[in-house]
Design a protein around this nucleic acid. Structure first.
Length: 540
RNA sequence: GACCGGGUAGCUCAGUCGGUAGAGCAACGGACUUUUAAUCCGUAGGUCGUGGGUUCGAUCCCCACCCCGGUCACCA
């Protein structure tokens, strides 16, 4: 595996191979020669030339600010309020989304974060300088417009521009599609910006031209806000714990490793917050939560990202039953507040996120969907079944791993509606308390929804003696080659020795919740800047 | 990591049974003072992902590699 160089171009001082001037060079050219080079796309060269013409006109192409009186949706509403022929005077700002030049006049739309508004430019009404500026306008430019609102012959509320201000000149064409509003009022975009790779790499362009993408991230922000509000209402304290950790734990995953020069020590990016949050419960902060990024050095696919957002919370004096109720209530409340409903179509199925959720034991789930009984099946049978499910190294896996493989392969894909699967095998739950009356099981549940894990929760193991034994078992698994087994955390054991009260804990994959809430089947669609391989040499 | 699909103009795509490529939109020039996928006339725009090979000739066929998507594996 060779390391890749960062995709940054080099900038050096020297003499320009185009004009010979001493300057900062890019590809051997000074800035002026670079932008006018035939290697640039024609639209970029054209727009660069317009900067010089703007300078001749005395127009500053990049403004410092603009006092608007209304956002675009507010301006539309202001006219409805007025109701008369001529509406109020407004000062609005936005990107030029469309432009229809009729000679002596022109129509265009400007757009901002949450709306669009038509602008009518009539040359007779504009100062000469503004009229000249109109000729230099491009799609994508940020402008400010001042004038009264009115309704056109076709009925659209529009600003009649009396003043036009350039706020920022675009040097590169944005990939706008053509928008058609059908008779049903539906918006159809023709030949828009759709290539997923380009959309992820240039998310700024994606957001600028695809309003639906902005809505995804507004919904995401809204849901996270409601999760916070729910927990605040229940007296949870929001905290921040280390991302750089000397030991990693709280999940089974391979970590990213880094190094601190001054401390001369290896550090890991956290794979979970768990062990730090429970230390806080020891410290009498009896209800805590954290929303933040976790990092796992694993594969990337539709439901996995190397960095992802996790909500973890811990509540003293609760057990896993309490966590089930909290999870149902928290998720359905947050989704309902933001979407107005608790259902959404996801991968062709209507997913109902409202409480209560279906419940079944881990054992019943494996019997029903996996065809094996995790408590009774012989090791050989488990090996056969795991192999039948495509696991080639089944010979080398211990019993609990085989069961876990079968759960992932056979059970999870069937659980589309949110399902509380509870009472997990104790061996794969090293931080959970044993189940009362059944020590082979742990008081742990997962919520599976849309075919993948959404929530993981348990009655937290607070017996330091038991935790000592579980760490020891993990150490054995590690010695046997299990790269995901958790290292022994002595400081965490010391914390437990100070006394962890009975505690319920829960982790929720925020990205996956957003996927379900928005109906989008890929974690990349709900991540602003998803992890992609560096795109070397992709300059244009 | 394996397999399948894809990478062609700024964007969305077509195409070449091997003879260096087209459309729509965007751009540029012109006409038009209530348009809204505006319309009309004209112009320009491409190392066909990268590097090799076969060939008189490769965007097309072959090989390798890169990137994206999907499926599987991995990720409790």
């Amino acid at each position: 595996m060779t390391d890749r160089r960062p995709p940054n171009g080099e900038s050096v001082l020297g003499s320009c191979s185009g004009c010979g001037e001493e300057a900062a060079l890019r590809d051997g050219l000074c800035r002026d020669c670079w932008y006018t080079s035939e290697d640039r796309p024609k639209p970029v060269r054209d727009r660069y030339a317009k900067l010089a013409r703007l300078e001749e006109l005395g127009v500053e192409p990049y403004a410092y600010g603009f006092d608007r009186t209304h956002t675009l949706p507010e301006a539309l509403a202001a006219y409805e309020d007025g109701g008369g022929e001529e509406g109020p005077q407004v000062r609005v700002a936005g990107r030029v989304l469309s432009y229809r030049d009729l000679g002596g006049s022109a129509f265009g739309h400007v757009g901002d974060r949450s709306g669009r508004l038509q602008v009518y430019f009539k040359r007779d009404l504009l100062a000469d300088a503004d009229s000249d500026l109109l000729d230099l306008l491009d799609l994508g430019d940020w402008v400010g417009v001042t004038g009264p609102l009115f309704r056109t012959r076709t009925g659209e509320v529009t600003v009649r521009a009396e003043q036009l201000v350039l706020l920022a000149k675009t040097l590169r064409p944005l990939p706008f599609g053509k928008e058609e509003i059908t008779e049903d009022g539906e918006r159809v975009v023709h030949s828009g910006f759709a290539n997923p790779e380009a959309r992820y790499r240039q998310r700024y362009a994606d957001l600028a031209v695809n309003p639906g993408v902005r809505e995804i991230f507004e919904a995401r922000a809204g849901i996270v806000r409601e999760l916070r509000r729910f927990l605040e209402d229940r007296d949870f304290l929001e905290v921040e714990t280390p991302i750089l950790q000397p030991l990693y734990g709280g999940a089974f995953a391979r970590p990213f490793t880094t190094y601190h020069n001054e401390l001369d020590s290896t550090l890991y990016l956290r794979i979970a917050d768990e062990l730090y949050l429970k230390r806080l419960i020891v410290g009498s902060l009896d209800r805590v939560y954290e929303i933040g990024k976790n990092f796992r050095n694993e594969g990337i696919d539709r439901t996995h990202s190397p960095e992802f957002t996790m909500l973890e919370l811990y509540q003293a004096f609760a057990d896993y039953e309490g966590m089930i109720e909290l999870a149902e209530s928290m998720v359905s409340t947050a989704i309902e507040k933001v979407l107005g409903v608790t259902e959404r179509e996801y991968e062709g199925t209507l997913i109902r996120l409202g409480a209560p959720w279906r419940r079944m034991t881990y054992r019943d789930a494996l019997i029903e969907y996996g065809g094996v009984d995790p408590l009774e099946a012989e090791l050989e049978e488990l090996r056969r079944e795991a192999e039948a499910s495509g696991r080639s190294d089944a010979e080398d896996l211990p019993r609990e791993k085989l069961i876990d493989v079968l759960f992932s392969a056979r059970v999870e894909p069937h659980l589309l509606q949110p399902t509380v699967v509870y009472d997990f095998p104790i061996e794969i739950s090293p931080l959970a308390k044993p189940k009362r009356g059944e020590p082979r099981l742990a008081e742990r549940f997962e919520v599976i929804a849309g075919g993948s894990e959404l929530i993981n929760a348990f009655s937290e193991l607070n017996d330091p003696m038991d935790q000592w034994d579980r760490f020891a078992a993990q150490a054995c698994a590690r010695a046997a080659g299990d790269l995901e087994a958790q290292p022994l955390d002595e400081d965490y054991l010391r914390a437990l020795e100070y006394g962890l009260p009975p505690t319920g804990g829960l982790g929720l994959g925020v990205d996956r919740l957003i996927m379900l809430a928005t109906g989008l089947g890929s974690i990349r669609e709900v991540t602003l800047f998803p992890s992609l391989r560096p795109d070397e040499g992709a300059e244009e």
